[in-house]
Amino acid sequence: MIPTFSQGPIEVPRIVTEFAAGRPALPVWRNGVGGLTFQIGEGASRQFLKWTPTGSGIDLPAEVVRLRWAAAHTVVPEVLDEGSDESGAWIVTSGLPGRTAVDDRWKRDPATAVRAIGAGLRALHDRLPLDECPFDWSAGRRLAAVRARAAAGRIDPADWDESLRPLGTVQRALDVLADPPPVDRLVVCHGDACAPNTLVGDDGTCVGHVDLGALGLADRWADLAIATWSTEWNYGPGWEGALLDAYGVEPDPERTRYYRLLWDLSD
């Protein structure tokens, strides 16, 4: 057990102990389905092991394929190893310079963090080549998955963000999602552009991205709607405009509302 983890005690998966082989293993992230990420080792040689339990619904092999594809065009972690057993699956990646945009240093300086997130997302969208991308994250594909979840009774309006609850029912939400706005600009989206997935260097600029398991072709607002939303979760209200300024785009309330609803009803 590691009793000092900020989100409470955790059970260290066997693979973490085996891979660390005596090196320090520091838990740095836990997601909502029990997945854990550990920093193995320290300094420039540190590595990261992401583990997710069996049945979590997270497809780590899909992330491996996307990371390897994106690495030819932008800065993402290098995949060093992957595997699975009866308890779960894991991938091991190289460390990158910088700190997550929700590190305490950047939470004390949200103006710098938000600029880095916006500029970094714009650079990602500009660098990843549309005509070479084999991955789909379009509204249509995601809506099909949402409908399947709804049919299985896996969507509860009580779990929605407060801003979305006036829709009232799952059917009303599905009706809204059935009419997506026209694509503003098709790009290769990150797929989880929340603040923690941007790495910020000591100079305050974006130095890379992590957690690209959903990367794929979509309207850029599929990323921007969530990136701006996450500034509220991580830094408080009032930072959305700064992120959009750093990205270089005017606000788009219609697309923002649509993609936030799609996000909240997805996995």
Rank of each mutant, 00 (worst) to 15 (best):
L262G: 03
G204M: 08
G22H: 07
E63C: 07
E86K: 15
A62Q: 08
L60H: 08
G55E: 01
G98E: 15
G213P: 06
V176Q: 14
G204H: 12
G98M: 09
P182M: 04
P110Q: 06
E232R: 14
D81V: 00
A113Q: 02
R68T: 14
A89G: 14
A123F: 04
Y247R: 03
L199G: 09
S230A: 02
D192E: 06
I226E: 04
I91T: 09
L80I: 09
A193Q: 08
L96G: 09
G216A: 05
A214T: 15
A101W: 05
T205Q: 13
P77N: 04
T4N: 07
V33M: 02
T169Y: 14
D203I: 05
T169W: 13
W160N: 07
S230P: 01
W69C: 07
S56C: 03
A139R: 14
R105C: 01
V75A: 12
V114H: 10
W69F: 14
A119G: 01
T93S: 05
E42K: 05
S230I: 03
N31I: 00
G204K: 13
G43H: 06
A21L: 11
I91R: 00
R185I: 00
P196Q: 11
A89N: 09
G168L: 09
G213R: 02
A113N: 01
P9D: 11
R257P: 04
S45P: 01
R122Y: 07
D175V: 12
Y258P: 01
E18L: 02
R14Y: 08
G57R: 05
R142M: 12
D136P: 06
L128H: 11
P157I: 01
